[in-house]
Design a protein around this nucleic acid. Structure first.
Lengths: 350, 350
DNA sequence: CTGAAAGCGCTAACAA
DNA sequence: TTGTTAGCGCTTTCAG
């Protein structure tokens, strides 16, 4: 009654052939006769033969596993990207092993080691926020395991990376608001020493400049963005006179906070004040009005990262030139930023 | 210049000891002298020795990997549970390999096989919605690999499982609303052939009965719940006279839709109509007012599932009694359901 | 088209 | 306390 997994050797014995023949038959090798293949696959199915990945990997030196290391699996963004990564990898016949660094440098270094132990053939990383010393990212390379960054990259890295063009996103959002007729656009930014926040802000400034508008420092608000800082910022901004006619937030939760405060002051969105933001969490489509923002392209990000990695894996001889792929962000225009003139009939109704 | 990973054999040669000594030293085995341990770990560090997980697993018959199979990694719930699973597993020294079934029976069966090939020592599964034929869940057992379900379980399964008490959730939410003084509580349910929806609804009915209230069929609305069906349901319900003074939605997006419609009709939440819902997505804390709901206990779910699985792994001899763990849901009371009397001062102000 | 034999890197009896 | 030896299950030359 005690059941043991069937091995290739078991199959070989039962069929009176050599293990190598079974192995080849199962791999659909060219020079195995159809008859033998039939017999082998038949019995394999009957016995529920499951190949032992560990043994195959040990022997062939190929694990067929890609490692993925993300800061965390909470919120909207990373789960979505990981989802895209696993699908794309599966399509190409690869497994994926996922680790979380929990935004911690120590755990990140440990995870890299863990993935290398698991004999992954390539690694995708979104760096932890806390990471200062980045030398643990070099060990894969020394073992000829390619590493590709996505979303979060160490400064001046020599690795390949897939990124979203934050500057372009800030520029496009601002240009959109200007084109809709908004003129006093407030900006809520996160800490400006964080690269992507700085880039978004620069895009905002440049767009204003491009349209001949001044950057009014009084309309820029820097904070660790979330719902309550978004609320506080908006409350502050409403004290200005003339008050801003649009608010651009570098994070969507802050935008929601701003919108709440506007509604509490009986200001209409978008007729009195437009709201727009970065990032693209589900709730932005649930807000009323729905929120204009930048689509972070999670799917494209994951897909591109996998392709880049597989490319590096398949060309181990090449000089491993680092390739930085910058994805263009997509502006998603929704109700919260549609100019007055478009909504004029509605205004008269209400 | 061509670098090869250092192996135990390399270390052994260099140190003039046997491979087994190195192996034991690295494993911190009792009867290896401190001196030898020092020498070994020292050189291992210097050479950046990385143990080969594949080889160790093959030899020891232990992979140290747990398999996780979820319907998808999008939305709020599953990423959160997976996060909890990986943390808990890591704490106990286990790796985790994650697969997505994409709610598809075929992919689910394939993923189970994949995990078995990877020599996982145990499997956690949340079943795909589309799965009718559940026999692929039996193959792990035949190979003495324990399988534990969480969240989504096949009907009449003989496996262990960790579940949320949907009935209790429905009951508690309803009781809370009744205790707050609401009397005409409408109910938005998903398809009642889905177990958890049926249980939630039963809890609602029983709570009403317990407080001596009738179940008014006209206040029950069945649909595939989302934002727009939530809106439609609410619009319908407002035609009733007298109109409901509370709405309980079996899914949070539907509750958001209902709240939007209420606001559009200038009905105040919670003074005129209370709103509460199941599930606990981030945006329920961003809504205005914040939404009362049931906490789905993602962290506890993941943690419990891992513990149950590890328990089964560590006691392979035991008769493997299936254990069903039912987690008590937690009622999270927020602004959307606080009774009129508590908010009376605010009402006078506005 | 198939078989024999070696060995991937590690661990665990058993022996010393 | 350490060494010797064998082998986990598979793949892959090389030889028929």
């Amino acid at each position: 009654m005690s059941y043991r997994r069937a091995s290739i050797i078991d199959l070989a014995k039962a069929l009176n052939v050599a293990p190598s023949t079974v192995s080849r038959a199962l791999a659909d090798h060219k020079d195995i006769s159809e008859v033998t293949k039939q017999r082998v696959t038949q019995l394999a199915k009957e016995w529920e033969y499951q190949p032992n990945h560990l043994a195959a990997g040990l022997r062939s030196g190929r694990s067929g596993i890609l490692g993925v290391l993300v800061p965390h699996l909470t919120g909207y963004f990373y789960p979505e990207v990981v989802h895209s990564i696993t699908s794309e990898a599966a399509k190409a016949g690869w497994h994926v092993m996922i680790c979380e660094s929990n935004e911690d440098e120590k755990q990140e270094a440990k995870s890299i080691a863990l993935l290398l132990n698991a004999q992954v053939e390539g690694i995708l990383v979104a760096m932890a926020q806390a990471t200062r010393n980045t030398q643990h990212f070099d060990s894969p390379h020394r073992q000829h395991i390619p590493l590709v960054f996505f979303d979060r990259v160490p400064p001046k890295t020599t690795h390949s990376a897939v990124l979203l063009d934050d500057y372009r996103g800030g520029y496009n959002l601002t240009a959109h608001l200007l084109e809709q007729g908004y003129r006093r656009i407030a900006y809520l930014t996160g800490p400006l020493h964080v690269n992507s926040y700085a880039n978004r802000y620069q895009g905002y400034c440049d767009a204003l400049a491009h349209y001949g508008m001044p950057v009014d420092e009084a309309l820029t608000y820097q904070a660790d963005l979330n719902l309550s800082t978004g609320r506080a910022a908006m409350a502050d901004l409403l004290l200005h006179s003339p008050r801003p006619d649009a608010v651009l937030a570098a994070k969507d939760t802050a935008a929601v906070g701003a919108m709440q405060v506007l509604q509490e002051h009986s200001l209409r969105v978008p007729q009195d004040v437009a709201v727009a933001s970065f990032s693209h969490d589900t709730f932005t489509t649930l807000a009323a009005p729905t929120l204009t923002n930048i689509d972070h392209q999670c799917a494209a990000l994951g897909r591109t990262a996998v392709r880049l990695l597989l490319e590096q894996i398949s060309t181990p001889t090449s000089p491993q030139v680092a390739r930085q792929v910058i994805l263009s962000p997509m502006l998603v225009v929704r109700a919260s930023s549609l100019a007055q003139k478009h909504l004029a009939p509605l205004v008269e109704v209400s």
